[in-house]
Amino acid sequence: MDMQLNELQQQISDACGKILERRAGPGRARALRAAGDFDRLLLTEMAEAGFLDLFGEPEAGPLVAALITQWGAQAAALAPIGIRGLVAPSVIHGDLPEVIAIAEQGAMGAVRYGAEADMLIVLDGDEARVARRGEFKAETIKSKFGYPIARITEAKGEALAPGAGAIARRWWRVAIAAEISGSARGAVDLTIRYMGDRVQFDRPIATYQALQHRIVECHVSTDAATWATREAAFRGAPVELAATAAIIASEAAHRVFFETHQLTGAMGFTTEYDLHLYTMRLQTLRLEMQGLRAHARDLIDARWSAAS
């Protein structure tokens, strides 16, 4: 058991970090949101560097794909890194386009990156199909949720191998957990900086113990989500671990949203301040796949259905 980054993982972390530093960040995310756009350039650069195709690489695998998803989210990258790097390769072999979206049949009213996607994976129970551009129709929805969101009005496509829906669902949960972990960490770090700068009653609010304890709870929850995500990815996203990671992450998302906004006060609710770039996304992520209740239902079915 060794949970430190090995040499290869460290190299990937360094190289990926450089791209994210140059291409991502809150400033770029805000500009993209204002223009109603997303970060195709970042995806292209990451794809060219090979960072989106590590899922099947024996030396890297899904764990590194999950790490990259976490790092991207922490850097406020506005691009579907997790779906492309972690979910799609679990069910589709061969070349993949850069921008991929995923949706559940019967719940296609709000799909992240639906209008921008070159490919849409549709889960239908344990089965799944893949629709390429031209085989599905999407309408952009004006949304405050921090991501480009679309309504899918039609999706044809080609059936994937039997059971692909169940597999993709597990990896989708890991991807959500990875993205929450990264976004939550971004929000917590930003809030700690704010608390050090913001002076009230003649001292930084970071010196008040009552406030310190609230941000510490966010740190603990985020830490838990991070490690749960990584183990689920490492172990191949078995149902129980994937659902557990999604539950821990969803709870962290709820807590981090609530507390970081409380600690940042009115400033946190402005679009001039960066917090919303992370926290609005946390809301989307904790609701995706029908949220906490669905994650818990799948965990219970997997672990205790035989006992009932």
Partner: peptide, 28 residues
């Protein structure tokens, strides 16, 4: 009851994973 047990299981997993990370640091 199942939901309550699941909730405890999840809390325990969060603990287990953090402890593994701590241990890994110790081993390093």
């Amino acid at each position: 009851s199942r939901k309550a047990i699941a909730r405890i299981y999840v809390i325990g997993e969060a603990l287990r994973l953090n402890v593994m990370e701590q241990l890994s640091q110790r081993v390093a």
